[in-house]
């Protein structure tokens, strides 16, 4: 079960002086239970790609298939597919409108016809799987902290029971604690079988969290694969707007000195291999 973007292209304002190509022949596969990061500079096409995965945009060439079915523009099944792919926008809390957290989370499933006990169950499940404190359900969402609001926004998408969760810069504006908690939550959802697609320009978090990374530059894919493969590529081929994390640069320096470890190694592994190399262990 997967979303497959096959060679998709998209240009904004076609035929006007403001024409700009946002995606040029990009392909990507997202399997359920996978964490995929889309990284690139500002304006590289990341958000445009995310909106394609949720069918908010239709590719002008190429195709999007969801669970083996190609989604054609205007397809009667678009609505169903859109439910399966939940999209959490940048700063989703700015779109809150309900007076209580409960009403906010109920909104989407009730639009889909859930009522009574079914609706309540949906909300309870979403609250529990997003790690929200149930005591917050009767609060006004605008009185919550930034991290809590982000959770409410995610819960309101999870209440639709999506199979794929696409998040555009989900940690923007959160503090260190908020980022850590959100990252743990997304990891938990992924382990429960949901696909997590994260749009980010933070290469550091992408390298440490993802199963696969797609790097975009000016709308084109420059490298796509495992964090190890992407790190190897980027160390040799700088990409506009992406800064190689200092720890990766450090490991790359160690390798030049003859220490053979993966570029994407963690702190413990790095220290251990230095000590082994120096003959201390």
């Amino acid at each position: 079960m997967s979303i497959i973007a096959d060679d998709i292209s998209y240009t904004y304002n076609t035929g006007t002086p403001a024409e700009s190509a946002a995606l040029r022949g990009v392909s990507l596969t997202v399997e359920r239970g996978e964490w995929v990061s889309i990284v690139g500079h500002t304006g590289s096409g990341k958000s445009t790609l995310a909106q394609h995965l949720n069918l908010l945009l239709t590719p002008q060439s190429g195709a999007i298939s969801i669970d083996g079915v190609e989604v054609k523009p205007g397809s009667k099944r678009s609505r169903e597919f859109r439910r399966r792919v939940g999209l959490v926008f940048q700063y989703p809390e700015t779109q809150f409108f309900a007076e209580t957290v409960r009403a906010e989370i109920e909104f989407a499933p009730s639009n889909w016809g859930s009522r009574g006990d079914v609706l309540k169950e949906r909300v309870d499940e979403a609250v529990s799987s997003s790690g929200l404190d149930p005591l917050l359900l009767d609060k006004n969402p605008f009185t919550l902290s930034g991290g809590q609001r982000r959770r409410v926004a995610i819960a309101s998408v999870i209440a639709m029971k999506p199979d794929y969760l696409v998040l555009d810069e989900p940690t923007a504006g959160l503090d260190a604690t908020g980022i850590k908690e959100l990252t743990q939550l997304l990891g938990k959802l992924r382990n429960a079988g949901l696909a997590v697609v994260q749009v980010t320009h933070d290469l550091r978090s992408a390298l440490s969290l993802s199963d696969k990374i797609l790097v975009l530059e000016n709308g084109s894919c420059v490298v796509y694969g495992s964090p190890e493969l992407v790190a190897e590529y980027l160390v040799d081929n700088p990409v506009r707007g992406l800064v190689i994390p200092p720890v990766v640069r450090f490991v790359s320096g160690l390798r030049e000195k003859g220490i053979d470890i993966p570029l994407n190694s963690g702190l413990g592994e790095i220290i251990k291999s230095i000590e082994v190399f120096k003959g201390r262990l």
Binding site: I179, P245, F250, L254, K257, L267, I271, E275
Partner: peptide, 30 residues
């Protein structure tokens, strides 16, 4: 947040893999 490079830097110092006074810069640490 403690950036991972600062965590690495402090670990290198703690284990005396680099001498005290080394600044937390990749080239200098290497």
């Amino acid at each position: 947040e403690e950036p991972p490079e600062i965590a690495l830097y402090r670990e290198l110092l703690t284990r005396s893999l680099v001498p005290p006074g080394t600044r937390p810069r990749v080239e200098e640490l290497l």
